[in-house]
Amino acid sequence: MAWNLDSDRPIYAQILERIQRQIVSGEYAPGTKIPSVRELAAQAGVNPNTMQKALSELERSGLVVTMRTSGRVVTEDMEMIKQIRKQLAAEQAAEFIKQMKELGFQKADILALIEQETGGEEA
């Protein structure tokens, strides 16, 4: 279905992560309305109760706010979004470094690789 999810990891965590990313990347801009649980569940092809749980978690963390009139919207607290972005980046970096070390790369090799791979973009 529309969302690519691994069936061997808790679905709830994967949905949570995915919506966080969508918010951080600006796909769901601050202040925009999030579709209903039912709609999102149908889009993702997941259980509505699981989707509900993920959205509740997002609400608890403050990234999503429930407005009385317009339902769930993305927070307009830019500071918080920035913080989540940092956190996600840190997690990715840690994962990347772990994998590189498994391949036998040392710190210097990793830095050189990054330098080489990102070199084109800066030019």
Binding site: D6, S7, D8, R9, P10, I11
Partner: peptide
């Protein structure tokens, strides 16, 4: 519960 299978066994329901 299916999430229990994924969490505790680290497996998909199918597996």
């Amino acid at each position: 519960s299916v999430e229990e299978i994924r969490e505790e066994k680290g497996k998909s329901v199918d597996a």
